[in-house]
Design a protein around this nucleic acid. Structure first.
Lengths: 134, 134
DNA sequence: GCTTACGTTGACGTAAACGTAATTTAATCA
DNA sequence: TGATTAAATTACGTTTACGTCAACGTAAGC
């Protein structure tokens, strides 16, 4: 009964993904060149699965956080500790801790920047009150 | 009485700043080329004040958050609404709101990434338990 | 069979953010 | 005062992350 039914919506073309995530197809192919994606092919046409879509989302999230594509590749690989041995797993846990530290630093940076922005806005509003009648 | 006393520690050379913030002097000069810094000169030697030092800290914070130098320049300029008029102030407030939105997006990204990392680590530890005896 | 739309692979171009000499100037210390 | 050290100024090189053609394949619809 559970044949190959209703997986029509679990496939994506390159332009579908491009549209959905508001990137160019060029970028998506570029990510593939760098080994961040490796979609299946029908003929020579790329077929993207849900998993590929998730990877793309992770890539773009990384970009918003200022990660290089190479950084993102490493992080994404962390999510699939498939056929790794004990040593690799331990190294992976270390890498995860490193990333966590970086992210916590970012959290700190952001909260400081937000505070600064609030202050700057207050100064602006102040200046408007003082200056609005000129 | 309050002549020019004891401001010896409020001046910095380029290499002092470079060392303190762990960047190259080349980078600092580059920021100046782009108009993010404009230190005073003694002869042709650059003299940095506390204010310059603060600006540099802001620049590097921006970098950690993935901002371009151009973005940082705009943000930093927000902190000094000196001789601006009403229209400029209003535009500034809008720009501040924009930045705030971006930062909130980043906060969301980071919390998701942290969750993912936690899960990845849990998977690792699990794999270690299962696999550790091989 | 022609157009239109979407997809493919090169291959070269480019903007940002520095790196890396090479050379010159200025200050200082033995 | 000659050598060393720090700083400055060109100026070309490099890496990352794509943009931008060019040239071609393929399936859909009329």
């Amino acid at each position: 009964m559970t044949k190959t039914a209703a997986n029509s919506s679990t496939e994506y073309s390159i332009s579908q993904l491009a549209k959905e995530f508001d990137v160019t197809t060029r970028s998506i192919r570029h990510y593939e060149d760098l080994g961040l994606l490796s979609p299946a092919r029908r003929g020579q046409t790329r077929i993207y699965t849900q998993a590929d879509r998730t990877r793309l989302r992770l890539i773009l999230r990384g970009k918003r956080l200022g990660l290089s594509l190479e950084d993102s590749r490493e992080i994404i690989d962390m999510y699939e500790p498939g056929k790794t041995n004990v040593d690799q797993l331990k190294k992976l846990i270390d890498a995860i801790q490193l990333q966590r530290n970086k992210l916590n630093q970012q959290l700190d940076d952001i909260s400081k920047l937000l505070k600064d922005l609030n202050q700057a806005e207050a100064d602006c509003i102040d200046a408007l009150k003082t200056n609005g009648s000129q």
